[in-house]
Amino acid sequence: MISFYDVTLRDGNHAMRHSLTPEFVREYCQIAEQSGVWAVEVGHGNGIGASSFLVGKAKSDDYSLLTAARENLKKVKLAVHAIPGFATIKRDIIPAIKAGVDIFRIGTHVTEVTTAQKHVEYLSGQDQMVHGVLMMSHAIDLKGLVSQAKLMAGYGASAVVLMDSAGNYVPKDVATRVNALKQEIGVQVGFHAHNNLGVGVSNAISAIENNATIIDGSSMGLGAGAGNAPLESIIVNYRRMKSGAPSLDKFLEMSHLVETKCPEYLPRTTSSSIQSGDAGVFSGFAPQVKQLAAEFGVSQEDLWQELGKRRLVAGQESMIREIAQDLMNL
């Protein structure tokens, strides 16, 4: 059986420029609770403890968002994302445990898993469910991917989740990578799509066909850059693949809520997202690229290409200004 993992209230917060409110969380979770989704992830787009000038200030603090979710999720698990370097155990993770979070996802750039050792070990030592997340998972070769995933599993993660943070994969890439992990690591494998190239849903289906058991998606694809794989579309596909799949109605109700509550934030595949996806650049940079390209009078296309060349990773938002400045002075 597939565990469907809903990132609308976390990745979607990127699209909403971190303006998510407890009221919206409450309303969304009330429907999610009835939907058959396995878990709902809540928080700042870059996870708990990440609200900052660098990647965006959140309108509502982590605690009030988590509390609003917790009050409305009983059967459905409450999850958070946390990135070492932004979130610390003391300041962010312990309060989240106290707020009743069920699943902790500790994420690092795909080559930097060792920075998560303490956090993953701490959580598994506290008998908390912890997943290891490999962000920008396209930015490493297959052998490297497997060895980083093994580290996560070794620290005590009960699942390793591949994030296609740049929306760079096509379905055959997902098949190769999910397969390799299924064979090499003894824990669950999850997959998190982004729709930069317009193949987010196909990628999620490819992950399912290759025996990934945790599948991320968001209502209306609300998420960074070109957005995630729309959860309702994944469910529709899955219903044609397997019997006993969740029914569609509550998923559509969640989509409808997102569609009506924040029409201005709905993501889509654009020429710019295809360029960033193909260049393998983190989707979350989109707002900064748009703003700084305009400020410095350079083209978004050139800026995306340069970011790809310099291999920026999530969290280096402040360098986009320097690069835009360099491009202007060329």
């Binding site: 660098l54 750039h109 969290g315 402040s318």
Partner: peptide, 21 residues
């Protein structure tokens, strides 16, 4: 106050940068 640390694996290696806000 808030401090953030990001590790970048790019080759050739990047120079350290610090932004104050």
């Amino acid at each position: 106050v808030k401090s953030i640390l990001v590790l970048n694996p790019a080759e050739p290696p990047v120079m350290m940068r610090t932004t104050v806000h």
